[in-house]
Simulated assay, not measured.
Amino acid sequence: FEYENINGGKTSLESLKGKFVYIDVWATWCGPCIGEIPALKAVEKEYHGKNIEFVSISIDDKKDVEKWKKMVADKELKGIQLFADNDWKSDFVKNYAIDGIPRFILIDTEGKIVNADAPRPSDAKLKDLLKEVGL
């Protein structure tokens, strides 16, 4: 993937090679997604400086890009914040067979999927998974 980031540039999965990537697929209208934000922020803080990037991909409608930007700012979201190019019809959503959110995916340093349905940040099993891969 290569999507618009919150800073106005583009970020690709390829540019993150060499690091683990924990992807959060979410939307501003998704209550359970928003409910995971405090736990996600805590996990990001705990793993800060380790060989992992936290990437959040919003699948909001294009018309809601300003709503997305406001929520990223208001909730002080960290990590790499991306906006999918075509909401539910994005190639990423189709390629990963995402039919519900929130959805979390862990990718290894080579860009291979470790877990296409990784534990949520609020689930203690996430830390077990990160420990298993050496983080």
Score class of each variant (00 low, 15 high):
Tyr22Leu: 13
Val114Gln: 06
Lys127Cys: 00
Lys94Thr: 13
Asn95His: 08
Asn51Ala: 14
Lys10Phe: 04
Ala73Ser: 14
Val43Met: 06
Glu2Tyr: 01
Ala84Ser: 15
Val43Ser: 04
Glu36Ile: 10
Phe54Pro: 01
Ser90Met: 09
Lys125Phe: 01
Phe83Trp: 10
Val133Gln: 03
Gly79Arg: 12
Lys112Glu: 14
Ile107Asp: 03
Gly35Asn: 12
Thr11Ile: 11
Ser58Tyr: 05
Phe54Asn: 03
Tyr47Leu: 08
Ala124Cys: 01
Glu76Cys: 01
Tyr22Gln: 07
Ile57Cys: 02
Lys94Glu: 10
Met71Ser: 00
Lys131Ala: 12
Pro121Ile: 11
Tyr22Ala: 04
Ser12Gln: 11
Asp91Gly: 14
Lys131Glu: 14
Leu106Gln: 00
Gly31Cys: 01
Thr11Glu: 11
Gly49Trp: 06
Gly100Arg: 07
Leu126Gly: 05
Gly79Asp: 10
Lys127Asn: 07
Val43Cys: 06
Gly49Pro: 04
Trp26Ser: 03
Asn86Ala: 15
Val55Asn: 00
Val55Lys: 00
Asp117Arg: 09
Val114Trp: 00
Lys75Pro: 01
Ile6Trp: 00
Gly49Tyr: 07
Cys30Val: 05
Phe1Ala: 09
Asp85Met: 09
Ile59Lys: 03
Tyr22Glu: 08
Leu130Phe: 07
Arg103Asp: 10
Arg120Tyr: 13
Asp24Leu: 06
Glu2Val: 10
Leu129Arg: 04
Ser12Trp: 09
Gly8Asn: 03
Tyr3His: 11
Ala84Thr: 04
Asp108Cys: 08
Leu82Ile: 08
Glu44Asn: 10
Tyr96Gly: 02
Pro38Ile: 12
Lys125Ser: 13
Ala116Met: 11
Glu110Gly: 09
Lys125Cys: 02
Asp117Lys: 14
Trp68Asp: 00
Ser58Asn: 06
Lys112Ile: 08
Phe20Met: 12
Asn115Val: 05
Gly35Ser: 10
Arg120Trp: 09
Lys41Ser: 10
Lys94Gln: 12
Glu4Ser: 14
Lys75Met: 13
Ile98His: 02
Thr28Trp: 06
Ile98Asn: 04
Ile59Asp: 01
Glu44Met: 12
Pro38Phe: 07
Ile37Glu: 00
Ala118Phe: 01
Asn115Met: 11
Val65Phe: 02
Val133Ala: 03
Leu16Asn: 04
Lys63Val: 12
Val21Ala: 04
Ala97Gln: 11
Asp117Ile: 07
Phe104Met: 11
Lys127Asp: 05
Tyr22Trp: 10
Val93Lys: 02
Pro119Tyr: 05
Ser58His: 08
Thr109Gln: 15
Thr109Glu: 15
Ala97Met: 07
Gly79Lys: 11
Phe104Arg: 05
Lys19Asn: 15
Asp61Arg: 12
Trp68Gln: 00
